[in-house]
Design a protein around this nucleic acid. Structure first.
Lengths: 340, 340
DNA sequence: TTGTAGGCGTTATCAG
DNA sequence: CTGATAACGCCTACAA
């Protein structure tokens, strides 16, 4: 199928290529109504489809957004298995497509930067999920395109951030446990890294304890990775070695689900013996037995919001549109927390 | 950050742009070793990054692959919530990136075609998951690029297909149930559409029944949509109205998980009262309580295979590389089937 | 082996 | 309001 070009259209319509370009780009004020008509019908007849590569070359706009998500530990695969990211991606893609943009979804190789990709593809902007090393962000700034960060507390006004009050979320979760009479509350979590969301949730955990005059016991902190497997492992340990623990706050639903499994493998019933609360409210939270009580964020909406902010930054040709956004948070009380 | 171009590199290296281009594209045979060196170091020094838009314009290769996944019923969001698709995407992305390609992940608007996107972006190929109306495929053929279909039984040698012996899978599942003494076996499934995978699984269900001289009862077929919600609904109905049913074959794990929930809401225990077997072996299958027995396909590997076949078709400049591939299938026996 | 120049499809400038 | 025409960055005959 031979490509129909602008020129073909202009010849067919009997006008210049410039006129066609104007019409196609909505600068109709610069062109007479009848020319507009002629162009439109020529486009129809020929079934003309513009070439974005050429467009990108000519005006540095690719209508392409880079979306980066973290990879598995062995660095080879996307972390899409974590529904948190897939739901985010859903929200992003919907909004982008509806606005005439496309998304290049990828992970980023360990160490390697994202600068290459963004330059190669002339990306109009990027949405970065997860947290990376400092140098990664420095590189990003060099490219000089609008960027939205999700799940990062990087304190740099260059970036747009669609955040969450993670500290408050952690606090809410643990307070709920305390309100239900729990005292010995474990924390199961991925690595607590500086400037990461987990650190904030951890801080919320501590605040709730302190407020209730409860002792913070480092032995009750199980810290390793954000995965079902680790949750399971931690759940086992709690079941086997910590009969005094009656409640667990997991900083991610995926981990919480694992803890539930580990606990029950260890012979302890949820919520009868041990209560548990998660974070995120992924799709699967309500599918577990019993359904998981958790701190709910509207993940898909957050993705859509990220896309929206990015697009508006792009249109206004500024990197940062506004103050960081904090998405709302609420408790989703289901059946894994028992009143003591 | 001003763009470094081929020309900059050539000037820096003191050679022509052609020479640089040759070196960059591995046609080193056409160039003297010392030129090669000069170019390489100039590229390093200047930190040259090629512009894929320009490249695409010049030689019609974008290094861009379109990946299409189905949308939710209301047509607005990707079906990434179904882990089956996210795992597939993981497999695809990994392989693509490792080969220097990028992926544009998108849904396709209802009715609208994919021709526009593929032309606009000069896609080198596409991987299409799910099943669409005839006209969609016809359009695809017009673009004349290699295409890999996943989960389609379209009988057209134009397309590469990475399939599964779905009929055999359905047979295996139901035979397992029968071997465990079950006689009244329900089928819970999404819409049985012609040329879809579900139809084949359905056929396998019937074959297993027939082979065991069991009566096929249309009342035992619960057909609606591939979703957790529908599974739950069907599970409820089975619990309430069909005490005689002792086993369920769900044509997708997501549905199976829903059935389990519905059953237990209806007061029936899995597997004590009702056995259940799923299909796919998504990540969450082993996370349910009890862990789901299912027909296992290696989803990620299938995605990787799809990418691999596509790339090889692209490199050989042919649409179809080989015979359709059938990925292996096996029973993953866990704890939701009870021997009667 | 190397360099020159034309073309890929658009956009944008700048005279008419 | 319209129409040439020069970029945009790269590739590749073709010529030297």
């Amino acid at each position: 199928m031979k490509r129909v070009t602008l020129k073909d259209v202009s010849e067919r319509a009997g006008v210049s290529t410039a006129a066609v370009s104007y019409v196609l780009n909505g600068r109709e004020g610069k062109v007479s109504p009848e020319t507009v008509d002629k162009v439109h019908s020529a486009v129809k007849e020929l079934n003309y489809i513009p070439d974005f590569s050429a467009r990108s070359l000519a005006n540095n706009k690719s209508k392409l957004i880079g979306v980066v998500i973290p990879q598995t530990e062995d660095q080879s695969q996307l972390l899409l298995q974590n529904p948190f990211y897939s739901e985010l991606v859903c929200g992003i893609e919907g909004k982008l497509r509806q606005s005439g943009y496309h998304m290049i979804l990828s992970g980023v190789d360990k160490g390697a930067g994202y600068l290459d990709t963004s330059m190669q593809r002339n990306l109009d902007g990027a949405i970065i999920m997860g947290i990376y090393q400092e140098s990664f962000y420095e590189e990003l700034k060099k490219v000089s395109m609008p960027i939205v960060l999700i799940d990062s507390y990087i304190n740099d006004s260059y970036f747009n951030v669609i955040g969450l009050d993670d500290e408050e979320g952690g606090y809410l979760a643990v307070k709920h446990l305390i309100d239900n009479g729990h005292v010995n509350i474990a924390l199961v979590t991925g690595m607590i890294r500086k400037d990461g969301v987990i650190e904030k949730r951890f801080l919320g955990y501590k605040r709730a304890l302190k407020e209730a005059n409860l002792f913070y016991n480092a032995d009750y902190v199980f810290e390793h990775s954000v995965s079902y497997e680790y949750g399971e492992q931690a759940g086992r340990i709690i079941a086997d070695k910590h009969p005094e623990i009656t409640a667990v706050f997991a900083t991610s639903d995926l981990v919480a689900l694992g803890v539930m499994r580990g606990l029950s493998e260890g012979g302890r019933k949820v919520p009868y013996d041990v209560s548990i609360i998660g974070f995120d409210d992924i799709f699967y939270a309500r599918m577990s037995t019993p359904p998981l009580t958790t701190v709910k964020q509207n993940i898909t909406a957050r993705g859509a919001m990220a896309a929206e902010r990015l697009l508006s930054a792009i249109q206004n040709a500024e990197h940062r549109t506004d103050q960081p956004i904090l998405m709302p948070l609420e408790l989703a009380v289901r059946q894994t927390v028992r009143k003591l």
